[in-house]
Design a protein around this nucleic acid. Structure first.
Lengths: 198, 198
DNA sequence: CCTACCGATCGGTAGG
DNA sequence: CCTACCGATCGGTAGG
């Protein structure tokens, strides 16, 4: 997880301390969910009292939204980078899938894995999350638009199916058994349907 | 949601009252999740105080597990019934997918939609849920085993991909826009890969 | 089925 | 960054 550090500051003070706290919070949210992670949990992991965190953040809600946005920022970067290495449409799609899966399946990526359980989050937070996620998913629109799909496949549904497939992978993949690339390859094979060549 | 009524009793007393409470609780759990639904919420929806519910149930945990198991019991029945109407392997699979999707996408089915967020549930409950779900998913093993899949598709991964696809549909399908059958048809098209005919 | 309460926990704040 | 606390809410119980 890359987190911006606005202020110029000595190591382990100011912005650096804040960044460390954000990373700790991200790990906890990813593992235990929004409601399952208390401010006291975060404080304990950071070696301070829960109340002391409010020197660095405004509220639990704001913290979560900030982490979510930073996670999607980084995911977009990595996916764009991976796709740009490929020219052929299916290869581009598979590279993007592999990049997203690597993020979703890495237990230490601190990046995304919890970003799907929108229901356990307050309504105001949910609105912000969904808006950002919708923008993120737009990045897959061109990737899918360039595929030579047979006409009986609806591209909008196809894109949603692919994205939900990628996002739900963490729910069933047993860590260590299958690599993100293995899963990405199988997903690519299932989702590959050329209009001409079978 | 079908809930067993063990005792013979007059309408709206004993078992009937209990069943009504279970259905109310199932609806709330489905909409708000486990942690997002308090016993007081359930009591309010049932027209009683939260504490009064403990005359009918032992604990929130036990209530949730009971609802989960009843939901999977009914889902298994409906899926088996739908698949049995078809002979051809792909048709059987599509029928099973449509049956499961109808359950997952019906906001009033009181049946399953919340059964995926295992992370917000206590560990002891989670164990029971996962065990039951694994047994449920076994029902799809034969359906997949009978498909004439090309050898480069791993049947175990394929089955997991299909199930997670079906289970995550409720997260993105906007109710009313697409029918469960439409989604099932598109999923069937994406997942259909014959070994011989393209 | 109710009132009244328990111990625990939550997000957050005051005041230093 | 701490101590000490707030008001709210939680699952659950006692006693009727």
């Amino acid at each position: 997880m890359m987190i911006r550090d606005d202020r110029t500051s000595e190591p382990e003070t100011g912005g650096a301390r804040r960044r460390a706290i954000l990373e700790i919070a991200a790990r906890l949210f990813a593992r235990k969910g929004y409601r399952g992670t208390s401010m006291r949990d975060i404080g304990e992991a950071a070696g301070v009292q829960g109340g002391s965190l409010y020197h660095h953040i405004r509220s639990k809600d704001a913290l979560f939204v900030e982490l979510h946005h930073a996670a999607l920022d980084e995911a977009e970067r990595r996916i764009a980078q991976a796709a740009s290495q490929q020219l052929e449409p299916w290869a581009r799609l598979e590279a993007a899938c592999a990049a997203l899966l690597e993020i979703q399946l890495d237990p230490d990526s601190l990046t995304m894995p919890m970003m799907n359980d929108f229901r356990e989050v307050p309504a105001t937070v949910r609105t912000a999350l969904i808006e950002r996620r919708d923008r993120f998913e737009t990045r897959f629109r061109d990737l899918v638009a360039n595929l030579p799909l047979p006409p009986e496949l609806d591209r909008s549904i196809y894109r949603n199916l692919l994205l939900s497939q990628l996002n739900s992978a963490a729910d069933w993949v047993r860590p260590g058994r299958l690599s993100p690339r293995d899963i990405a390859e199988q997903i690519a094979r299932v989702f590959r349907h050329d209009i001409s060549t079978g």
